[in-house]
């Protein structure tokens, strides 16, 4: 089993247990770079900023570690949306990991489109570790965006 799968199993268990009649609360994964977005999320907590509880943060050493397969597996397991959050362009701790991630996100969006999944379920953001407020804002915006799109068909159609 790949390291990612553990997190995703948890996610899919939670997802399937949620009551259907309640207001749609999306499950959103946020792949956050250790050097910026993850620290920004932490800072948001320290600053006591509130943001929707729909976001489940997964820390990665750099968005350059992100693999298209992580994104696809997450959707396959029922995620409604995915945030990829890396450092600002030009500020990657590993020089260009975030630029590599940007291309991979574009590619993953194309793959999603090719099977008929809304590509706006996946977005990439760039921020620094000092931007606690910005993180909270991204979390809220993305939650709103996914609420508008509605639940993933992959969850409701589970055989």
């Amino acid at each position: 089993m790949e390291p990612m799968d553990t997190t995703l199993e948890i996610l899919s268990d939670k997802a399937s247990h949620r009551p259907a009649e309640a207001e749609f609360e999306p499950e959103i994964l946020a792949f956050c770079c250790h050097y910026c977005a993850f620290a920004a999320a932490d800072l948001a907590g320290v600053m006591r900023l509130s943001y929707p509880p729909n976001i489940k943060i997964i820390r990665i050493p750099c968005t350059g570690k992100l693999d298209v397969l992580y994104l696809l597996k997450a959707f396959e397991k029922g995620a409604d949306g995915i945030i990829v959050a890396g450092c600002e362009e030009g500020s990657c701790h590993f020089q260009r990991g975030n630029l590599i991630a940007k291309k991979r996100v574009v590619y993953a969006k194309k793959l999603l489109q090719s099977i008929g999944i809304e590509d706006s379920r996946l977005e990439m953001f760039n921020l620094s570790s000092a931007m606690g407020g910005r993180f909270a804002q991204i979390a809220s915006e993305m939650t709103e965006q996914i609420k508008r799109i509605g639940p993933s068909i992959l969850r409701s159609n589970k055989l």
Partner: peptide
Amino acid sequence: EKEGKTLSSLLRMKAQMEQKL
């Protein structure tokens, strides 16, 4: 291997979306 996994994942998702076994 990776392309095989990616493709399989897409196929599984599409099958599930169309409720096809």
